[in-house]
Amino acid sequence: TTVHVNGVTYHFPNPEEAKKFVDRVVKEAGLTVEVKGNQWDVE
């Protein structure tokens, strides 16, 4: 699973890890998340 955060790419072994990361980032920074298949874009 690939997560893009403001142009930076993070790779995770599974969607659960990616979701935990995204949830944390979104809570801390108040960002928006767009999910496209296995790819997350966070802005």
Rank of each mutant, 00 (worst) to 15 (best):
E28Y: 11
Y10K: 01
G7N: 03
W40Q: 07
K36N: 14
E16G: 04
T9E: 07
N14H: 02
E17G: 02
V22H: 05
A29L: 15
D41V: 15
D23P: 01
L31F: 12
E34N: 12
T32G: 08
P15S: 11
V5Y: 14
F21L: 01
Q39P: 09
Y10G: 00
V25S: 03
V22Q: 03
D23T: 04
W40P: 08
T2S: 08
V5A: 03
L31H: 09
W40N: 07
E16W: 13
E43R: 11
G30S: 06
P13A: 13
V35F: 11
V42A: 09
V26Q: 10
D23V: 03
T32C: 14
K36V: 15
V26I: 13
H11I: 08
G37Y: 13
G7D: 02
P15T: 10
W40D: 08
E34A: 11
R24I: 07
E16M: 08
R24G: 05
N14M: 01
V42G: 09
K27R: 12
V5N: 01
T1N: 04
W40L: 07
P13D: 13
G37V: 13
T2R: 06
K20A: 12
V22I: 13
E16L: 06
E28D: 07
E34L: 06
V42H: 09
F21C: 02
D41A: 10
N6A: 06
R24S: 10
A29F: 15
K27V: 06
L31S: 09
R24P: 01
K20T: 05
V33Y: 06
E17V: 03
N14I: 02
E34M: 06
W40A: 08
F12Y: 01
N6M: 09
E34T: 14
K36C: 15
V22R: 07
E43I: 15
N6S: 04
G37E: 12
G37D: 13
T9L: 10
K19M: 11
V8Y: 10
P15A: 13
V33K: 03
A18E: 01
N38A: 06
F12D: 00
F21G: 00
T32P: 06
L31K: 05
Q39F: 10
K27E: 06
Y10A: 01
V22Y: 13
Q39N: 11
K36F: 14
E43L: 14
H11Y: 13
E28P: 07
H11W: 15
E16F: 10
V35H: 09
E16A: 09
A18G: 01
V25C: 15
N14F: 02
F12H: 00
F21V: 00
G7R: 02
T9K: 09
N38P: 13
K19Y: 06
A29R: 04
D41K: 05
V22L: 13
V42D: 10
V8N: 04
N38S: 06
E43M: 13
A29G: 12
E43S: 12
V25M: 14
G7E: 02
F12A: 00
K20P: 01
G7V: 01
N6E: 03
V42S: 10
G7Y: 02
V22A: 05
F12L: 01
G37Q: 08
G37N: 10
T1A: 07
E43N: 12
V22G: 01
N38H: 06
L31I: 12
E16V: 06
V35G: 05
V33I: 10
E34Y: 04
K27P: 03
A18D: 00
N38C: 15
K20S: 07
G7F: 02
A18Y: 02
V35P: 03
G37M: 07
G7W: 02
D41P: 10
A18S: 01
T9H: 05
V22D: 01
